[in-house]
Every structure is written in C-alpha cells, then in structure tokens.
Design a protein around this nucleic acid. Structure first.
Length: 499
RNA sequence: GCGCUCCUAGCUCAAUUGGCAGAGCAGCUGACUCUUAAUCAGCGGGUUCUGGGUUCAAGUCCCAGGGGGCGCACCA
C-alpha cells in the first residue's frame, strides 16, 4: 500500500473519514452494534403494509449501504444483507435529530456497514423502511463499491470475489446452489447407507488417474510427496477393509491446463459400492444427479430440468441414453472398428480427420480420441458411453462378455464428461500386470502413467469384494446444473498473481 | 505451450487518419422532509498495464514483458 498521500482521491477521502470518526471519539469498527433482526426477518414480519402505514415495532437492523438518497432534512439509504435482501432506512430530522443526521451525511459512504434502530414503517411512496431514531457505523469501508448497475470485469469477479458477492446476485446464488448440491449428495448417500471418508491428499505415489501431479516436500520425513490426483487407491483399500459403501467429497489437484472446464484444483466425488457393478453405479449416478437437481434447483420429481445461465433449458429427467464406444465410433466413421482393429488403421483414420497423433498413443487411446472427436463432442443430452478400450483403463475389470474392452462408462452431459464409472478390477495378479505396464509407459516418457503402488497391490491381494466405483466432478455437476464455466462455480478459483 | 484479442479516472466505457485524454455512475461543495440507480448547480480526480523505440507530436504505430478473454493442444 503506497503512502496515504499517493492514494487515489476516493480512497484518501474514506481514510480521512475514518480518522475523523476516531478523533471524534467514534469507533469506526465497534465490537458490536445493535441488531435485533435480519433485513429478511423485517420484510417477512411486515409484509403487506399500506403506503404511509406506521407500526410500533422497533427493530435494530444492520447492513451494507448500497444506495443513498439524501435530501435536506430527510435521508434514505438502502441496506443490503449478505443474502442480498435489501431494506430501506430513513433518517428524518424530526425523528433522529440534527446531530445524528449531520453525522450520517458527513460520515456514511456507499459500501459502509451501518446499524439503524427505529420503528418499522411503510413510506409514503410505499417502501418498507426502518425510520431511524438512532444509527451507528458498524464498519467503515475504505474502498468504493463498483457501480451496482454494470457488471464488473470478469477478472475483478474472480480476483475480488468478496466484491462480486456484494455486487452480483448471480454470484451469491451460485454459492448457495453449490452448497445445496453438496448437501443433496450427502443426503442421498446417507439414505443409501454410504459412509463419508477422508483419505490422504498428500501421497507418496500419485495414482488412480492419468494426470500429472503437483509435487511437494515433507520436511519432517524428508521425502517427496504429491498432492493427490485421485482418492481411488485409498478408497479401494477402504473397501478391502470392509467399508462396503464409501464416498469422499474432496479436492483433487492436477498439474495440467486450465480452461473453462478445467481447474488445477477441483472438487471430486468418488464412491465405491461392494457387490455392485458399473450398471448399478450408472443407476446410482443418475439418481444422485437428479436428486441434486430437485434439491438445489427446486425441480419436481420426474421433471428435473435445469434453467441455465443463458436462459436455455437442459433436461436431466427420466432414463438417460446409453451407447457403446466401438459400435458408435464405427457408425460415425462409416467403417467397422473393434478392439482388434490394427493400430495402423486407427492412425490412418485419425490423420484423415486431421487429428494430431502422438507417437506414443496406443490403439485404445486412438479409439478414445477418434470417439471424442466424432461422437463425444456432439453429445448434448445426458449419455452413458460404455465399454472402453482396455489399455487406457488400468484399474477396470475386463468386460464379462466382450473381448478387448473394459466395464467402464463415461457420462457426457452438455458435451463434457461429468462422471466415469467402473466395474472395479479386483484380480490382484491382473492388477499388477496392468500397473507394471503403466510403469513401463512411465519409464518410456509418459508423464501421466501411474507408478506401481505396492501397498495398494498388497491390499488387492488381501482381497477386494466385487465392486463398482464412480468419480464425478462436483464443479462439473454445478456446470451441468447452472450452465456456468468452472471458474464461476468455484468460489475462489486459482488465478495468476497480479503483477 | 501456440495463435488471436483486450488492458484508459474508484467502477463501466469513449477518444476519427498519430494532433489539447472525455462521459455516466462514484467522490467533494451547496440546495432540497418521501426518495427508489433521487434530483438540481458547481468542483476535483489520470504512471492511458510496465519498459524500451519511431516521430515535431504516441492512449493510438513498432519491439519486449505482465495480466485478462477467446480458440487450439493436453486433461476430467
């Protein structure tokens, strides 16, 4: 902070006012101020007063000043609560006295938080108001509020979310919707008999997903640690231990690109259920998402339709369509593709479509990329895409009847991947082979390949019951339900430091 | 990481071909006892993102850097 002399005029003026209050013996930041009711409570209690009607109900309210209208002997201010509720405060010379009115005019700026005490009345122009007999500064704001009638820049919204929350109703709404979604998920899991677990965020090996990790260091143990990219390997250990229905909602960290649907840290839901398979998990997932739409958006059962930020509607109700990866890719490509299709043919298809082919890409990876390009990018309605190539899913059980694919689905919603579900691999010998193959990829330079986690394999050797598992991005669930970009669903998303 | 584009008053934005940096809101002073983004009159407020360069003259053109947005790549 530069010296006071160099501050912009408006910041200096407010600092001067703060100093003047202190000089006059008034604390601009008192420990407490009178407050007997929230603004919403006053509105609720006195709904429907006639214009000009006065009550004897004396209340003390507090809120941030968002508008001021000052006439000679009568001043109006609109206070705003944290939930966005607004209420008018009136200060009339006759009611509050000359000194208090003069002090108000001299000391109160937009953005200050004030307390006012007085009778609840309806103004002559029909606005519910507190007619103050006394007022007190609760918090002097030293920074001017942005204009309330134009959107702040996207950068200010994200960098100064505290301002965004004051100024933009939609910002307040997202926070509440997100909390309602998470609460709904917990309620759903509770009803299904699931236990909520917390597993390590700091891990000695990064496993459970294909992603580059953030690395860090433990001073106490003098070892390298990774911020987790997924909780999967620990939740499976929990299932081995008999926690048959387990879920975790917590942060994952992936050291990769950031855009409108990717954040370096993101909230992940994973849940595992013993004696279930990927079909059961698909049904569970649909149930969770639809319940979240009901609980957070107020949809009726069977009518789970989200109204998105752009005003369009998105229907999440009923059964969702399913399609299989290889057949749907074959159809889109106009030629048969199976797990037996030679890699060279797949490379040919990719090149013909103008897709870049990494030399290290396996046949399975190429199938996934072709599928995403030709089919996935065009999916709008909620769709389960089933039966993935084996090579790209090292933790998933091979399909019970189709050779060369695994029992994995991806749930696509509005064109992005919302969740992924599996029949979990529990054959420890096959699991070891798969992880060792991953390790060879890692040694060959694939920085997303998983290392061999011996303790995880030991747990598998103890024996995990047949189980289904699902991972779902919480931020993405919010995106699906609101139509917002990922950074709008996260209260304080990571941003580059200001210069 | 690559390409395109933007960055001007506290906030949102304007500034013609390179020719005196402006508006609305906000702030300050004054008027006003029923306003609703109050109104009216007057006044102040600028490192035009940073650093170089071209030019008589740069917000504007050129180079380098920082930050934002969009697209591509990677990822969920």
């Amino acid at each position: 902070m530069p010296p006071v002399d160099d501050l912009p005029e408006q910041l200096r003026v407010r600092r001067d006012k703060r100093a003047r209050l202190l000089d006059g013996g008034t604390d601009p930041y008192p420990v407490s101020v009178p407050r007997t009711a929230s603004l919403a409570e006053v509105r609720e209690r006195h709904a429907g007063l006639a214009a000009g009607e006065e009550t004897d109900d004396v209340v003390s309210v507090a809120g941030r000043v968002v508008f001021q209208r000052v006439t000679g002997k009568l001043a109006f201010a609109t206070l705003q609560d944290g939930d966005g509720t607004r209420l008018q405060v009136m200060l009339s010379l006759a009611e509050v006295g000359a000194d208090a009115l003069a002090a108000w005019k001299a000391d109160v700026d937009l953005g200050d938080i004030v307390s006012a005490t007085g009778r609840v009345i309806q103004s002559k122009r029909d606005e519910l108001s507190v007619l103050a007999s006394a007022w007190q500064m609760a918090t002097k704001s030293l920074r001017p509020l942005p204009v309330l009638h134009k959107e702040t820049s996207e950068e200010t919204r994200v960098r100064q979310r505290y301002v965004d929350l004051i100024v933009r109703p939609e910002a307040r709404a997202v926070v509440r919707t997100r909390a309602a979604v998470v609460r709904s998920l917990r309620t759903s899991f509770d009803a299904l008999g699931y236990l909520e677990l917390e597993t390590p965020m700091l891990q000695t090996l990064h496993g459970g997903a294909a992603a580059r990790p953030f690395a860090t260091h433990s001073n106490a143990f003098d070892i390298e640690l990774y911020l987790r990219i997924a909780p999967e390997l620990f939740l499976k250990r929990a299932v081995v231990g008999g926690l048959d229905r387990a879920f975790e909602i917590n942060r994952n960290f992936r050291n990769e690109g950031a855009d409108s649907s990717h954040s370096p840290e993101f909230a992940m839901l994973e849940f595992y259920e013993a004696y279930a398979d990927y079909d059961v998990m698909a049904a569970r997932t649909r149930g969770l998402v639809q319940a979240a739409a009901r609980d957070a958006l107020g949809c009726a059962e069977g009518a789970e339709v989200a109204v998105l930020a752009d005003g369009s509607e998105y229907d999440l109700s009923g059964e969702w369509t399913s399609l299989s990866m290889y057949p749907s890719l074959s159809e889109a490509l106009g030629t048969e593709v199976t797990p037996a299709t030679p890699r060279a043919d797949l490379v040919g298809h990719a090149e013909r479509l103008g897709l870049g082919v990494k030399p290290t890409a396996s046949a399975g990876k190429l199938v996934e990329e072709l599928w995403e390009h030709l089919v996935g990018d065009h999916l709008v309605a909620p769709t389960f895409v089933r039966d993935f190539p084996l090579e790209t899913s090292p933790l998933t059980k091979s399909h019970r009847s189709v050779d060369g694919v695994v029992e994995k689905w991806d749930l696509y919603v509005r064109g992005f991947e919302l969740a992924t579900g599996y029949s979990e691999l529990n054959d420890p010998v096959v699991q070891r082979e798969r992880l060792e193959a991953q390790a060879r990829l890692g040694a060959a330079g694939d920085d997303e390949a998983m290392p061999v986690d011996e303790d995880f394999l030991r747990a598998m050797e103890v024996g995990m019951p047949p189980a289904g598992g699902v991972g779902m991005g919480i931020d993405r669930l919010l995106m699906a339900l609101t139509g917002l970009g990922i950074r709008e669903t996260i209260l304080f998303p990571l941003v580059k430091p200001e210069a």
